[in-house]
């Protein structure tokens, strides 16, 4: 009875992702861009829910909406934002660039549609335990490396931003 819900929500989230993503690229209002980026991430979390990856969806919201968007907003508020025309490089070649982009992007999108199988698994179950199991057994070493990377990023960010005179 509720079969129509999945395509409906998919269309909704796809519209959100592509619309908000395009707005991030095209708009000239930096706070609006940051918020629309958060909307893209939230719609992406919805996509993950449709695919049955609920843990990933929650992590997506926690990390992207709760932390990365805030960091970007921090960057926006600490710097002076001036509006200026798009870059020097594409100033004269804009039509050419658009044409090239469409020529490159179209085949990929058309190719993507050739996967006809339904994406959602028939047997639904939480992805929490399989995810955790593979993360802490098969991928334990990459996991540790990732933690070292995060530590390095933490230290690096502090060192970069710290003023010398303090």
């Amino acid at each position: 009875m509720f079969d129509f819900l999945e395509p409906l929500f998919f269309a909704l989230f796809a519209l959100g992702i592509i619309g908000a993503g395009a707005a991030v690229v095209l708009l000239r209002r930096i706070t609006a861009q940051a918020l629309l980026m958060a909307l893209t991430f939230a719609c992406m979390a919805g996509m993950f829910l449709l695919l049955g990856a609920e843990t990933i969806a929650l992590f997506q919201v926690l990390i992207y909406v709760g932390a990365i968007t805030i960091l970007i907003l921090f960057g926006v508020m600490f710097t002076k934002q001036e509006e200026r025309a798009y870059g020097l490089f594409f100033q004269k070649q804009a039509p050419l660039a658009t044409g090239l982009a469409v020529i490159v992007a179209l085949p990929v999108v058309i190719l993507a549609f050739s996967f006809k199988d339904p994406a959602t698994p028939s047997a639904r179950g939480s992805d929490l335990i399989p995810l955790a199991t593979s993360l802490f057994t098969d991928y334990a070493f990459p996991f540790e490396v990732a933690s070292v990377l995060l530590l390095a990023a933490l230290v690096g960010a502090i060192v970069l931003v710290k003023r010398d005179d303090q």
């Binding site: 706070t31 909406v65 709760g66 805030i70």
Partner: peptide
């Protein structure tokens, strides 16, 4: 009875920051 209930709660808890920062900026 979500089996990721606690993660769900922390996720929603982290979203308030966004609203407060936006309120301060706007």
């Amino acid at each position: 009875n979500l089996n990721v209930g606690l993660l769900y709660l922390t996720t929603l808890g982290s979203m308030t920051v966004l609203g407060i920062v936006i309120a301060g900026w706007a």
